[in-house]
Design a protein around this nucleic acid. Sequence first.
DNA 1: TTATTTATTGATCAAGTGATCAATTTTATA
DNA 2: TATAAAATTGATCACTTGATCAATAAATAA
Lengths: 217, 217
Amino acid sequence: MKKPKTQRHVGDDGEGSARESILKAAEAVFAENGFDGASLRQVAARADVPVALVSYHFQGKLGLYREVFRARNPSTGAQRSAGLALARMEDDPDRRLEMILKAVLIPMLSLRNVEGNQYGVLLAREANDPKNRERGIIEEIFDPVATATIGLLRTTLAGRSEAQIVWAFQMVIGTMLYLMADSGRSVHLSDGACDPTDVDATIRAILPLFISGIRGG
Amino acid sequence: MKKPKTQRHVGDDGEGSARESILKAAEAVFAENGFDGASLRQVAARADVPVALVSYHFQGKLGLYREVFRARNPSTGAQRSAGLALARMEDDPDRRLEMILKAVLIPMLSLRNVEGNQYGVLLAREANDPKNRERGIIEEIFDPVATATIGLLRTTLAGRSEAQIVWAFQMVIGTMLYLMADSGRSVHLSDGACDPTDVDATIRAILPLFISGIRGG
DNA sequence: TTATTTATTGATCAAGTGATCAATTTTATA
DNA sequence: TATAAAATTGATCACTTGATCAATAAATAA
């Protein structure tokens, strides 16, 4: 008696195609263990797929890693760009600054709330890895939005030096990444009062810090 | 003819004892590759000792990793505590806030300038690793200073909620870690205008952002 | 000195790694 | 249908990993 060798993922709307299953599993495994800590066998097991299929679809570990970002980024990037476009049309400089910050922050901080989505954690991990320059993923993904954001910030901060503007931007991004990294430290230090999972409350708390900081500095 | 089997590191002031050589090498290798990306053989090669000696002195990879932090932290931790003690004696709330922030930030941001010192990069890496809770290193190292800092912040921010104070603290720490992580992004985005290696300039740039943010928010 | 503890060394182990292959099955195309 | 292309599978490759061992050398204590 033969084992039933049906292709498990084709037409199976519940879990999607094998390719999709692998991508989804890879995102979680990479987020939890980092690039080096993750193994293709972990990914394959989670996707319920033989190991060889992973390399077949993504040409190796690094290819899979890159593809996780390429698959997730368009959505987030589009949200941020759309928000920046709205901000660009706002005439009042103060309101424009607020809209810029919201456009940049909200799509990222919201990532954790999407069911089973670990892309935010993965992104924060990659951004804080000194080796990210070798991979070029961060540049590919963040540079367009970053330069657009800095350019837009410039219009609300007339008279500031380029360095001042970038420092302000880095403060925003650094804080954002730290909250995305899910170190659990905010909850720990505040005895539960600060919960980065609550995006609305987080924005309400940190936006005033940023705005006063940037305006006052 | 036998090979001369002298113990290479004993009494050798140039490179210190074998234990010290291993620790120094481990700091660099872990900083460059992360915990999972680093191998004991890389560490041993860099320290110019046989692999077995590493496990002998530090009881395995995790033990070595922990010891790197335990060895470096006392110095940095003492600097920060001393700065906080000075801040505590300052009566003027505004000046006290500035002293608190400097006490917390300067010892950390200065780490990169110490010759061949990669402890800052390593620390930032660990702090952004979601798995750091399993290891408990961050709590062991940061919690004392963190609670002291938050307690002191409270005295300069009368009327603020506990959450507000911790959010402000997290903004400072998140930005600090991002600048420590050596992603090279500040230099990249500012075309060289922002250089986290220049501690004085960095402090001059970001301290006003923090102070205005915290006071205004 | 001798005895004892501590360091150092090279070798080896089982387990896991990413990658690759030929064989098979499924899907798409003609 | 028949044929080609794409997808899936299990097996195997050479290699690296962390850990451990007994043997040796060195430092210390008696």
